[in-house]
Design a protein around this nucleic acid. Structure first.
Length: 599
RNA sequence: GGUCUCAUAGCUCAACUGGAUAGAGCAACUGCCUUCUAAGCAGUAGGUUACAGGUUCGAGUCCUGUUGGGAUCACCA
């Protein structure tokens, strides 16, 4: 049984015995003791004065005495105003440690939950096929990949999905520009990565279009009129129509260019080590949802207006009326999403569905979920919008048209180079093959990037400073990775010396403060994993990994391992290091960050 | 304008969901490598938690208002 539960049960007993009051264990709250006081767990007694008919001080004192006598695990306590700080006996901590240490042998890593029979689908990335991935995509990708792992660790069966926006007027823009200006260029002939090549023509379109409009305006046309009259825009709209009619030539070009983009995306996904279980394409889903509209009309949840357009009235929910079908019978974004979610539920009957999408779409998802509730979909209550804040740059907001976006591939390249430069400067790659060194730079670089983004609360807007993201000291992934590599070196040495770590340590004479602190932190790991899922926040795990690494480093400098003369103490310290490495590795794994054996 | 959201050290972020003297990193300064990897450790300095009220044993956290950012309110996706 875990420490918290034992304390809570004892407190419950204490209230029964001292005050003849039944205090359910579930109503008892414990909090970590502040560093400046002795103890690890704190029970706050302010609100129990009415029950005890005593002041806080006396209540805390009485409960504390009871726990010391009867709980079997509380060694001592101190009372500061109404705060009851409990010190847990060393041998209890050592039992906790033995449990953590021995769970390394089991199939399920420490802190992970067994299969809970629930399914969750996570959608993230959601790129357009007319330009390469940028920094904004990286936040959804890292968040989505990490939250998927976190749910998996909590016992869910997880399906990672991507919804690719592969059709529409913006896709036709790059296709048209390619047709007009491309001269048969291909990724192979130009040496340009496929997604970047297509992106080049998207930019080319915008440039040519602006020129044409300027030209028309110079000739005396109104700007709004010029935008409509533009031959480029007309040709683009024409192309979209042909695409919808299935014109072979247009469809062929579309397939070819999208193929280039997918190849490019795959390369990028591979570089940052993320993948999907299923990819949905809007070209397959954009017509879905019309049947949902029919259904809604039948059930009188939606209404049809005189012009033929279909609406849903959400004014009783505090929202507006929302269009679901245009008067010409074509669907809008909302219609698509209604159809897509039904299809997904059919593919994978989920208990939860997480949309990792930016907070500029808060309103959209609010509406979507309310409509699905009105349609009484069985899954409606399991839908969640993981709404993340925008990524700002020191220079201001990112805008693709103004060229102020940070390209994902460039960024990955940059952080990898920074890792290379620093590693070489420190001269730490003796004995590495070229491949091993390259692998290390990639692990460090992408790790730094992921951590930099994931350590921030997803809901909050964040500032991305490229210079800081490349930093490898302080609260960064390389700091944590370094801790892991150091422990690895210890474990290699221990292995050479033939030190056994599987023994019992409960009778160890004394625990150093730093040792106890490392155990206490490892003991928190399962709660952190649960909390991260509850809050949909990888930042919880990131913060935890940092705290544990920091505490281990303190132990590392304060306590010597191999000069210890007592063989049990020596073995314990090796075992402690081993367990800490395993937990650090697990935590980083939940963030999608790898850890190196040497660096 | 309506709605939503944010404001914490010079900068980037925390604060166990209402608890104790608000904590880390970066930048600055001081120490620690003949000893398990110094990408580390220890320390100094830095705060009227935007502002004004309120709620209570207790507020960075909840409520009201003010100021200042951001998003959104398309027969775009």
């Amino acid at each position: 049984m875990d420490i918290e539960k034992r304390i809570k049960l004892s407190i419950s007993d204490a209230f029964q015995s001292l005050y003849h009051h039944t205090l359910p264990e579930a109503d008892i709250k414990l909090q970590p003791t502040r560093k400046e006081f002795a103890g690890s767990h704190t029970f706050v007694t302010f609100s129990y004065g009415r029950i005890s008919k005593q002041n806080h001080q006396d209540t805390a004192q009485a409960v504390g005495s009871y726990l010391r006598e009867h709980s079997g695990i509380v060694r001592d306590f101190n009372v500061v105003t109404g705060f009851l700080n409990l010190e847990i006996a060393d041998n209890t901590w050592l039992e906790v440690f033995e449990h953590i240490s021995s769970s390394q042998q089991s199939a399920l890593p420490f802190g992970y939950q067994p299969d809970n029979g629930q399914k969750v689908m996570v959608e993230f990335s959601s790129p357009n096929t007319n330009k390469p991935l940028h920094l904004g995509h990286l936040r959804t990708i890292f968040l989505g990949a990490s939250i998927s792992r976190i749910f998996s660790a909590n016992g869910y069966e997880v399906k990672k999905v991507n919804l690719v926006n592969d059709r529409g007027i913006h896709i036709c823009k790059s296709m048209l520009a390619y047709q007009w200006f491309g001269k048969g260029e291909t990724p192979a002939s130009s040496g340009i990565k496929g997604d970047h090549l297509v992106g080049k023509y998207y930019v080319r379109f915008d440039k040519a279009y602006k020129q044409e409009v300027a030209q028309l305006v110079a000739e005396g046309m109104e700007e709004a009129q010029a935008k409509k009259q533009s031959s480029l825009m007309k040709a683009t709209q024409d192309m979209l129509q042909k695409w919808e009619q299935g014109d072979p030539e247009v469809v062929m070009l579309w397939k070819t260019m999208n193929g280039w983009v997918y190849e490019g995306f795959d390369t990028t996904y591979k570089r940052i080590v993320v993948g999907f279980d299923k990819i949905y394409y809007e070209s397959n889903t954009y017509l879905l949802g019309k049947s949902v509209v029919e259904e809604g009309l039948d059930r009188q949840v939606f209404t049809k207006r005189a012009d033929g357009s279909v609406w849903v009235d959400l004014t009783d929910e505090g929202l507006d009326q929302k269009l679901l079908l245009r008067s010409d019978g074509t669907s809008v974004y909302m219609t698509q999403d209604l159809g897509t979610v039904d299809m997904r539920y059919h593919d994978f009957p989920f208990d939860k569905m997480v949309y990792v999408v930016g907070n500029e779409q808060d309103y959209h998802f609010d509406v979507l979920f309310k409509i699905l509730k009105k349609l009484s979909r069985p899954y409606a209550d399991g839908l969640y919008h993981l709404s993340y804040g925008m990524v700002d740059l020191p220079s201001g907001k990112m805008k693709s048209r103004e060229g102020t976006v940070v390209d994902a591939d460039d960024l990955i390249q940059e952080v990898t180079e920074a890792a290379r430069a620093q590693t070489e400067a420190l001269g730490k790659i003796d004995g590495f093959t070229k491949e091993q060194a390259e692998e290390l730079y990639s692990v460090l670089g992408t790790g730094a990037l992921k951590y930099f983004i994931l350590k921030v609360d997803p809901k909050k807007r964040m500032l991305f400073n490229p210079e800081e993201s490349v930093q490898l000291q302080g609260n960064t992934a390389p700091f944590i990775q370094y801790t892991y590599a150091r422990i690895s070196a210890i474990l290699r040495k221990a292995n050479d010396l033939g030190i056994e770590t599987g023994g019992r340590f409960a009778d160890l004479a004394t625990l150093q403060p730093a040792e106890l602190e490392v155990i206490r932190l490892m003991h928190e790991f399962p709660q952190k994993i649960a909390q991260a899922a509850e809050d949909y926040s990888p930042a919880t795990v990131a913060q935890y990994a940092y705290d544990l690494a920091k505490e281990y480093n303190r132990f590392y400098t304060e306590v010597s391992i191999f000069s210890e003369e007592d063989p049990t103490a020596l073995a314990f310290r090796v075992a402690l290091s081993q367990a800490a490495a395993a937990v650090i590795r697990s935590a980083m794994d939940l963030l999608g960050i790898q850890v190196p054996e040497r660096m």
